[in-house]
Design a protein around this nucleic acid. Sequence first.
DNA 1: AAGTGGTCTAGACCACGCC
DNA 2: GCGTGGTCTAGACCACTTA
Lengths: 236, 236
Amino acid sequence: MIAKNHLSAIYKNIAAEITQRIYKGVYPSGAYLPSENKLSQEFEVTRSTIRKALNVLKEKGTIESKQGKGYLVKELHWEQSLLQFYSFGQNIAQNIENPESKLLEHKKIKGLKSIDEFVSTELWQINRLRLMNEVPLILETSYIPIDYLKNFEIPELKQDSLYNLLKKNDNHVVRAKEYLEPVLPSLNDQELLEVKEDSCLFQTIRYSYDSENKLIELRESLIRGDHFSFSVEMTL
Amino acid sequence: MIAKNHLSAIYKNIAAEITQRIYKGVYPSGAYLPSENKLSQEFEVTRSTIRKALNVLKEKGTIESKQGKGYLVKELHWEQSLLQFYSFGQNIAQNIENPESKLLEHKKIKGLKSIDEFVSTELWQINRLRLMNEVPLILETSYIPIDYLKNFEIPELKQDSLYNLLKKNDNHVVRAKEYLEPVLPSLNDQELLEVKEDSCLFQTIRYSYDSENKLIELRESLIRGDHFSFSVEMTL
DNA sequence: AAGTGGTCTAGACCACGCC
DNA sequence: GCGTGGTCTAGACCACTTA
């Protein structure tokens, strides 16, 4: 039951409740939410209050409204949100074609000195190479506590995304922060990404957290700067 | 007068009209808009329709609502929006301290081959160095058609921002797109930014357009990657 | 006390998708 | 035709700011 609490508006409580249900899988991604009318009956408010609540989720990109159909729970929405800033080339909005992912290595390590949260945590280290049209573009290294990824089968990684695997282990990423820096490739990077020693790369580091604010993945990516570019657009 | 046109919702037309008034200076930045009640009288709609229109501008960052006071027209909001992605260092949210701007050079050039819009346009080329706490951080080169910046006095540049100068010449930037790439510094860059040849930089290229979609500034910035980092945060 | 934005109600009509 | 989301109205009460 949603409390009528004047310290925080009702629509915010409803938005939080619906978000929780999405986390917990009551409203699974790919499915539609109950209609505005049904939700307004359940929460005993008018349709406009429900609309205001749903609008909160819509702005965050958690759901998407389709006239005549309903509210669709989006999958991986936040990962796409991060990716929307990347584009290929400068003016061309090319589509992602023939994406491919090669698993280079996976092993257990005892911890990461440089990351406070992972200093003494047993981790999976997973190295992958991402290609597009057979051109190597991104070199990824993920670190995930083994506790969060107990059922880990190699073939799954080739088909499923890491986030889906985490989901199956009941770990839901709800917040992520990503940092970008320009770097030069190491010898190993040069070989794998097929670039020269003087061609700069983007290095991104992404921290992914669950709803309890625990770090569940650290991902370092090296991205070829000659094929990717980061872009931001602003309109008054 | 706002037409009741069912091809596009009324609130969108009102939002566009108010945006135009902000462009034209009817509602200058730093001032408050007329109240919701007054606007609903003028446009002959209910308060909720006005609120929906104002919400469009609020989401874009054009205006800001303050309970009990009104809607404040923000200044340079889009430039701040671009800047919000930059941060100093990785985890520290340091403030910008002792900012300084050195005018290195300014001259007229006959055009830029690499930019279609500027191939045969007489341009101002303005080179500036930005420092923070006496550390050189950003090397900027701006190209502006001389037609758009007729009254150009050197001392003004030291105090006023380029956008304010353009505004005084009745050129209002309403849209900008910025691209980011990792690059290595040239010899000249190394000297000015005080970095070594193997320390990577961010190169950003920003295109600024006015309301008629004319390119009014091209700005290339070289940013020290060891002091700046780009970051994006996403929340479900 | 008066004016402002923030929230919420109850009801209406429209445009879209599907059967 | 029916259910869905999208828009709009008319009015109420609240919280905040300023005088």
